[in-house]
Amino acid sequence: MTINELIEKTGWKLATTQLDTSIEVSGAYCGDLLSWVMGNGEPGQAWITVQVHPNVIAVALLREFSCVIVADGANVTDEMVQKSTDEQLVMLESGIPAYETAKVLAALGI
């Protein structure tokens, strides 16, 4: 499933509106401790987190995630959106808790 299809099915907000969303989402990883995510994430996965510090962008790019899904209404700042856009990293906001976000992805077969 592509990020675009994911947005269509869930109604989740695309924070990085200028970026290409035809990227394939191959799975998902959920976590807020950056070293756990670095050590266990896989390329192509969507990363569900409540972390909104710019270091999230560095980790997501190095780990080659397809996108970051910010859960639980964590505040995605304009600075985050700008940096993420500059680095070509798609960022979504689910607006629901991480567990609920993961359940939705699972129900969609991701």
């Binding site: 807020d32 401790l33 950056l34 070293s35 756990w36 670095m38 050590g39 987190t49 972390q51 510090h53 270091n55 999230v56």
Partner: peptide
């Protein structure tokens, strides 16, 4: 607070 300090840094590097 920024998500560092999981205690997995050096173990990850070694692995």
């Amino acid at each position: 607070a920024m998500g560092f300090g999981a205690g997995m840094g050096l173990p990850n590097i070694q692995r």
